[in-house]
Design a protein around this nucleic acid. Structure first.
Length: 300
DNA sequence: CCCGGATCCTGCTGGC
DNA sequence: TGCCAGCAGGATCCGG
């Protein structure tokens, strides 16, 4: 479940079903998803066994479980990762990669078809700004995060996002605005779906040069990203198929509300012009050719 | 340092 | 029916 709203749906599920539990046993069924745990699968399992989960925290698309050992179980879902809470007698999923047994008899399962995602047990480092690291339940999270998240920018739903600094950094780039949105070091959690939806709301073409965007336009764009993500979250996220589900295996339904993404040939909800799809960065960009015309000096 | 393209995986779909 | 190219919501590495 790739983008911020879908990861936040998972985080909330982990909050409800896994926080407070102790890990009693671990099985790594495929080595690739723990490749970022440099000391190997055995060490990975050893550091988890006996640990209690104290919090579930998220920044952008990164997710981690704080453990009472001082370490954290760091997770990224990549393109196809799922975190499922299951009863032990539920049949193993086809792409089950890692299984954690919990002290309440349930299992936390990491299922990932394409294995771009993964898990690692890591030590936490201080946030550079000393502020809470990200989104967690029950008040602010600790000012600590996994090292691989240290370079990731605060996301649009983070109350500690420094909007003025973000606007300056976007405008300092010499690239197209969609590339900037997808750069997780500026702000995080934005992927192809929410980038296209926010650009449609802001009536911006994806190749609009960032350095010619007026400050208010960048501010509006960030506000549009936050708004579309908030609406998606309220509907349980976006999912086109069974690959993207919450910890109980259920799909969100924000796909019914998409104005541009995946809507090639369908009428623009604002002006009725047919939405187009074009190749962009080895994937797709969807836009309304009338509301979002190709700019002069386009920067792809 | 910044930017853009290639690459890592597996499975499904659509066209020939 | 069978095969294969193309595509999929992401991050990282590498060369310029």
């Amino acid at each position: 479940m790739p983008e911020l709203p879908e990861v936040e749906v998972v985080r909330r599920g982990l909050d409800a079903h896994v926080v407070g539990r102790t890990v009693t046993d671990v099985e790594v069924l495929h080595p690739r998803p723990v490749r970022r745990h440099v000391l190997g699968p055995l060490d990975f399992a050893g550091r988890l066994a006996g640990a209690r989960v104290d919090a579930a925290v998220r920044r952008g698309k990164y997710l981690w479980l704080q453990l009472d050992t001082g370490d954290a179980l760091s997770a990224h879902l990549g393109m196809s990762g799922q975190m499922l809470v299951q009863r032990p007698d539920a049949p193993a999923e086809r792409h089950l990669r890692v299984r954690l047994d919990l002290d309440d008899g349930q299992q936390l399962r990491f299922v990932d078809q394409r294995m771009f995602g993964g898990l690692a047990v890591v030590g936490l480092v201080p946030t550079p700004d000393g502020l809470p690291a990200g989104t967690a339940a029950g008040g602010p999270s600790a000012p600590l995060l996994p090292p691989e998240v240290a370079h990731v920018g605060r996301d649009p739903l983070d109350p500690h996002l420094d909007l003025d600094r973000l606007v300056d950094r976007v405008r300092a780039r010499r690239t197209g605005v969609k590339r900037a949105l997808l750069d997780q070091t500026l702000t995080s959690g934005v992927g192809n779906i929410y980038a296209d939806e926010a650009l449609w709301r802001s009536r911006l073409h994806h190749a609009r040069p960032t350095d010619t965007l007026p400050r208010p336009a960048v501010r509006r764009l960030v506000a549009d990203v936050a708004a579309v993500m908030g609406e998606a979250l309220a509907q349980g996220g976006t999912s086109f198929d069974a690959l993207y589900v919450n910890v109980n295996g259920a799909s969100g339904y924000f796909d019914r509300s998409l104005a541009a993404y995946g809507q090639a040939g369908a009428p623009c909800p604002r002006c009725g012009t047919a939405i187009t799809r074009e190749a962009f960065m080895n994937r797709s960009a969807y836009r309304c050719p009338r509301c979002q015309p190709v700019p002069r000096n386009a920067r792809w």
